[in-house]
Design a protein around this nucleic acid. Structure first.
Length: 477
DNA sequence: GAATCTAACTTACCCCGGGC
DNA sequence: GCCCGGGGTAAGTTAGATTC
């Protein structure tokens, strides 16, 4: 009898948290209740918003209705996370087949859940729920092949087979030459699998996702991470954002929504995903009972590193004392020998003494690069200091999607256009852009102009880019 | 009437363990 | 490696009271 572990039959990836993807329709509207539980008598969830169809200029009302099977009920936040694990299993199989084989143990490891009975039951319950749940997307399911919002009704999973220990052993005995027959399996519905195949998926930083503590932070991260593809600044009606896109209870008043969102926002700010804004900037009262929520993407999301004892290391203090981000310092300590770090710190201090602080514009960045790129004494002695790099060097290889490239290309085109203008032309362009912006953006632009904080820069960038998209290229011709 | 605050309720999470 | 069990704790929802 084969004693080969079940998980050994599964393909593995180099890093347990690499290869996580999010289906973008699933990121746009919640598929599950944020709560750990859903009332027994609640059988449906409904999420609605209104967007402008760029091709017609008309408003489109998008609705998602989630209907639960009586026996298994509505999905919860944990079922949503399970879905990410199922997508990862499919990614590893290269989306070759809607039927995916897996062991619950392997899935538990991928999801970072504890290896305990509840996790096994949770997976089985979740799979049953996704089989029983019906999703009705009314003008809210994006078909990437057709590039349009369509109406579709479907289940997430068509079928599920979960084997317990006893059945796994029995099936191993029966099918010695086909180990996959002892594995559990599930089958994606046609619509979901087609969406995967059409590439309507995005990379998900699962380490970052898992580092978030609350279901609200996680949901906000998935939704905003998708939305930040287009622009680094978004404003929403508070109730639409919190209730229709994040999934908070619609019974909450505005103040309760703000209170519930506050810890999640704070967590996303602390972890470097959202730019910090004051309460007045974050939540803007339009009129009585009507609030808007503003979110600005932080310039760099901090990589999630495991907690270490690095903080007690004198070298850690040396690096942080010279301006390095604590996380970057931790990473350097993990990845480079102490002698090398000590040497570069000395090099850094010598350079400072010899040529002064003004020579290097970004000193922490220089120190980071000196360690990573192994700058030598010669580099310091030469008249030309080594190249200056950003403080936060990219810590992981990031796959750049087609959409990201397009957005980057637009932004670069704008930068080129802007640089070619005289100061007077820039002022004229900016005045016209502000005049043509929405009332809300105009208000924020003028209100925050003096302070020139994060929000003002983000608002200004949005205004200029939008104006450039509409008229800028015509002006350049 | 809107905004704020408190507490009870339910269930997933966390931490510990064991069996095969 | 894989699957399973129990007890305490934490988090989201809800209802109701209070303040402005």
């Amino acid at each position: 009898m084969s004693k080969r572990p079940v998980a050994a039959n599964l393909p593995t990836s180099a890093h347990p948290n690499s290869g996580f993807r999010d289906e973008m329709n699933f990121a746009e509207f919640p598929l599950a209740s944020l709560s750990d539980r859903v009332a027994d008598n609640q059988k449906t969830l409904e999420f609605t918003d209104t967007i402008e169809d760029s091709s017609t200029g008309k408003d489109v009302v998008r609705t998602l209705v989630i209907t639960a099977a009586d026996k298994f009920g509505l999905p919860t936040a944990l079922d949503d996370e399970l879905l990410l694990g199922l997508i990862k299993l499919s990614v590893e199989q290269g989306f070759t087949d809607p039927k995916v084989y897996f062991s619950r143990y392997e899935l538990i490891k991928k999801l970072g859940w504890r290896d305990e009975s509840k996790s096994y039951r949770r997976i089985e319950d979740g799979l049953n729920r996704w089989t029983g749940v019906t999703l009705q997307y009314r003008k809210s399911w994006w078909v990437n092949d057709e590039k349009s919002w369509v109406t579709e009704t479907f289940h997430v999973l068509n079928s599920v087979t979960v084997y317990d220990r006893e059945r796994i052993a029995r099936r191993r005995m029966m099918a010695k030459d086909a180990p996959e027959k002892a594995l559990s399996s599930f089958v994606w519905s046609d619509q979901v699998f087609q969406s995967f195949k059409a590439g309507y998926i995005k990379q998900l930083d699962f380490d970052f996702y898992k580092s978030l503590t609350s279901a609200i932070s996680k949901r906000m991260f998935r939704f905003l991470d998708k939305r930040f593809y287009n622009t680094g600044r978004w404003e929403f009606d508070l109730q639409v954002f919190a209730c229709e896109h994040i999934g908070l209870s619609k019974n909450y008043s505005n103040s309760e929504l703000k209170r519930k969102l506050a810890p999640a926002i704070s967590e996303l700010e602390t972890n470097g995903f959202l730019a910090p804004l004051s309460d007045d900037e974050r939540f803007v009262r339009e009129r009585c009972g009507k609030w808007r929520a503003v979110f600005v993407k932080a310039t760099k999301k901090l990589a999630v590193l495991p907690r270490t004892d690095a903080e007690h290391d004198p070298l850690f203090r040396d690096l942080v004392g010279r301006g390095l981000n604590p996380r970057s310092a931790q990473k350097l300590l993990r990845e480079h020998p102490p002698e090398k770090i000590r040497e570069k710190v000395q090099l850094f201090d010598q350079l400072k003494e010899r040529v002064g602080e003004g020579t290097i514009r970004n000193r922490p960045g220089w120190l980071y690069a000196a360690i990573v790129k192994d700058f030598t004494v010669g580099a310091v002695a030469s008249a030309h200091p080594p190249p200056v790099v950003a403080v936060v060097t990219p810590l992981a290889t990031v796959e750049v999607s087609e959409r990201e490239r397009a957005e980057k290309s637009k932004a670069e085109a704008f930068e080129r256009y802007w640089e070619a203008l005289t100061e007077e032309q820039q002022r004229e362009f900016e005045d016209q852009a502000v005049a043509g912006a929405s009332g809300f953006l105009q208000k924020q632009y003028h209100r925050d102009k003096e302070a020139r904080g994060h929000l003002w820069h983000a608002s200004r960038q949005s205004i200029l880019l939008e104006h450039f998209r509409r008229f800028g290229s015509a002006r350049t011709d």
